[in-house]
């Protein structure tokens, strides 16, 4: 159980997909103009990640090594379709906001990386915790970037105005360069936190 917990924890800070591994950055920079968008894409990715890594884990002995990547894609495409249809039915507004980036979860390199590097080599329980941790770390990172950009760019938090109308909004934060700036500064912050946490344990 301790081991499983460690699998879960590493995805949040030490091996955070965004702040440490710096993978799957394309959707991260594209959709994080608000907290809700960030959490939405994060949770959708988490659902696909968890389901598809578990399936890959169960069928890992039947997949021929030479064609494993196409097999992984088929699995993640299946669950992406499910998630995409569910979101279209229950969260149409969010689905519109995220647009193409929901179907693109299929080729999200976080999912491929976890399937290839972890799910195909480990038992189901470890895979479940690993995927939960990675997915949650991904969601938290997206929410953090979205929070900063939404606050500075629109002056709102979760859509509620917190900065007076009189102060001009920083439009740059909504534009793609703002995503890069915020991501860079949050990576610095995450490294600082990691250094401090690491020192405390040592």
């Amino acid at each position: 159980m301790v081991k499983a917990l460690r699998q879960f924890k590493k995805g949040i800070l030490d091996e955070n997909p965004i702040f440490s591994q710096a993978i799957a950055l394309c959707p991260v920079l594209a959709v994080t103009t608000s907290i809700v968008n960030g959490i939405g894409l994060g949770l959708a990715t988490l659902a696909v990640l968890l389901a598809s890594t578990l399936v890959v884990c169960f069928i890992r002995h039947f997949i021929p090594a030479q064609v494993r990547i196409p097999c992984f894609i088929v699995v993640s495409a299946t669950f992406t379709t499910v998630v995409s249809l569910l979101m279209e039915a229950f969260f149409p507004a969010l689905n519109d906001a995220l647009g193409i980036f929901i179907p693109l979860i299929v080729v999200n390199c976080l999912i491929l990386a976890r399937m290839e590097a972890f799910a195909a080599k480990n038992p189901p329980l470890a895979v479940a915790f690993d995927s939960l941790g990675m997915g949650l770390g991904f969601t938290l990172a997206l929410a953090a970037i979205g929070a900063v950009r939404e606050l500075m760019g629109f002056g709102t938090v979760f859509g509620l105005a917190v900065i007076p109308e009189a102060i001009p909004r920083n439009i740059l934060m909504i534009l793609p360069p703002g995503g890069f700036f915020v991501l860079a500064f949050l990576i610095v912050a995450a490294r600082a936190v990691r250094a401090r946490v690491g020192k405390g344990e040592a």
């Binding site: 001009p168 920083n170 439009i171 740059l172 934060m173 534009l175």
Partner: peptide, 10 residues
Amino acid sequence: AMLMAAYALP
């Protein structure tokens, strides 16, 4: 240039 992109109107 960054101010121009961020605060185009002012």
